[in-house]
Design a protein around this nucleic acid. Structure first.
Length: 112
DNA sequence: AACCTGACAGCCG
DNA sequence: ACGGCTGCCAGGT
């Protein structure tokens, strides 16, 4: 019978992952984007799923350029991310957060 | 099949 | 400004 898609769901998820990673790579140095922005760009799932993808495949992209909606650095290795931002000249606030209005970048779900 | 966890986001106190 | 709770969706145990 036409078991054309033994795991169409897994495939869809893989596609989602590719789209997310693509968006992160689009973010230029000195700029940052948010999980919600990526989720919005991809137009599927939610920001939480984006975070999940990053934790698994984030090692292949500039993960430090992805921050929370309020400018808070990633939940892990915030010190590591801080170092990268200081080096790239990302507008940081005394609060230890990123100045989103100044550094926010909206990627697209394009094919990279 | 059920329950818990999770690189989040938004609202409330 | 900060901490806590809830909502959403998929994965892992």
């Amino acid at each position: 019978m036409d078991p054309v898609e033994p795991d169409a769901r897994a495939r869809a998820w893989e596609e989602f992952v590719e789209a997310v990673l693509s968006c992160v790579e689009q973010v230029p140095p000195g700029r940052v984007t948010t999980y919600g922005a990526i989720a919005d760009a991809v137009g599927r799932h939610g920001p939480r799923r984006v975070g999940n993808v990053m934790s698994r495949h984030g090692g292949a992209v500039p993960w430090w350029r992805v921050v929370r909606a309020d400018g808070t650095l990633p939940a892990c290795h915030d010190g590591e991310a801080r170092q990268h931002h200081l080096e790239e000249g990302t507008p940081l606030r005394r609060s230890g957060k990123v100045d989103l209005p100044a550094a926010f970048f909206q990627p697209e779900s394009g094919p990279a």
